[in-house]
Computed example of a mutant assay.
Amino acid sequence: MTDGFEASVHSWDLSTGVDGPGTRFVLFLSGCPLRCLYCQNPDTWHMRDGHRRRLDAIMEDVELYRRFLQVARGGVTASGGEPLLQSEFVTEFFRAAQAWELSTALDTSGHLGIRADEELLSVTDLVLLDIKSYDPRTYRRLTGKEVAPTLAFAERLASVGQRMWIRFVLVPGVTDDAENVDGIARFAATLGPAVERVEILPFHRLGQHKYDALRMPFPLADTEPPDDALIKRVTAQFAAQWLPVMVA
């Protein structure tokens, strides 16, 4: 089942509680069409910078932790970069993981949601969907792209009952406008029970050293993380729409 499939891979890691339920084997794929101002992984932007790896070799890595992941009620997460750039590979990766009774999670911006066909969604247990902004101008300033494909993808996921965690990165002075937050909250509320929770991710500068290593300026080097008052206000805005919300 894994013969012949390979991908451009940046790295992999084990995480608990932040990339889906339980303990996860997180595969970071290379390549991304967005250029988010707060991106913590600029080293994953280009597929050419990744390492070509076969799926059977990746599954050998997963197998080392297979029993632990099962006991921890976890599984595998495809992240990036943007995993939907390599959607066919993700489909086979998830198929192989489910054969081992491991849950699957797709961490995506949704910008390339059109590439998530029925076959891929059939082997996807959970979508971690980053809605970076609701206001089109803010989204364009933040990512260089349009928000419409992400919103359309969210609506398609909801229409087929696909489980989702909506993720929102809270950046002071960029995404924190009250009307923008209300827009995301109201939109998420229309998606119904498919949205299991909303995760607020407070901005941080922990990835700045990667920009330094690449000799690139970090666009938000002078931006401070959100304070408790701002986090409380934004949390209340999502809760006002009867959404289950947490700060990650």
Rank of each mutant, 00 (worst) to 15 (best):
H111T: 13
H51M: 14
R233M: 09
V123G: 00
S103K: 11
E199Q: 14
M59K: 03
A236G: 11
Y134K: 02
G80D: 01
M1E: 10
V18I: 15
E60D: 15
V62C: 11
D228W: 07
E146T: 12
L151W: 12
L112V: 11
R167S: 06
L157R: 03
A72Y: 05
D176Y: 07
R52Y: 04
A105V: 09
H111E: 07
G81N: 04
E88D: 15
T223V: 15
K132M: 12
T44A: 08
F5E: 02
E60K: 14
A240Q: 07
A248R: 15
D117I: 04
G74K: 08
D130Y: 11
V174S: 02
A236R: 13
D227W: 11
L129Q: 05
L69N: 00
W12D: 07
D117N: 15
L102A: 07
P149G: 06
R53K: 12
E63V: 10
D212A: 15
P33R: 04
T23N: 03
S133G: 08
L27F: 06
L37F: 14
R233K: 13
P172Y: 12
L214E: 02
R73I: 02
I200R: 06
E6L: 12
A7Q: 06
V147M: 01
T44W: 01
L121H: 06
H204R: 05
Y38M: 08
A78L: 09
I231K: 10
L129C: 06
E60Y: 05
A248T: 12
G183A: 07
T190N: 01
R35C: 02
G22S: 04
S159M: 03
R197I: 08
G81I: 09
E60F: 06
D13W: 06
K232D: 15
V171D: 02
V9M: 15
C36F: 13
L84G: 00
L128E: 03
E146Y: 12
L151R: 07
A178D: 13
G31V: 06
K232Y: 14
G161A: 04
D228K: 14
F218D: 11
A248H: 14
V9K: 04
A7I: 13
T77S: 03
K210N: 05
T16W: 13
V198S: 03
R48F: 07
P83A: 07
A152T: 13
F238V: 00
V123C: 08
V26R: 00
R53A: 12
A152L: 13
A148Y: 10
T2L: 13
E146R: 12
Q162H: 10
A99V: 03
F203Y: 15
N180K: 01
V169L: 15
R141V: 09
R141S: 08
I184A: 05
I58Q: 02
W242Y: 14
A213C: 05
L121F: 05
P217M: 09
D49S: 11
S103M: 09
E224F: 05
I58M: 15
A158T: 08
T124V: 06
G75S: 08
F89H: 04
A158Y: 09
A154P: 03
T190E: 14
L34D: 00
R54Y: 09
D176P: 01
S8Y: 10
S79V: 04
S109R: 00
E119W: 02
T124S: 04
G17L: 11
R141M: 12
R205S: 15
L191N: 01
A96E: 14
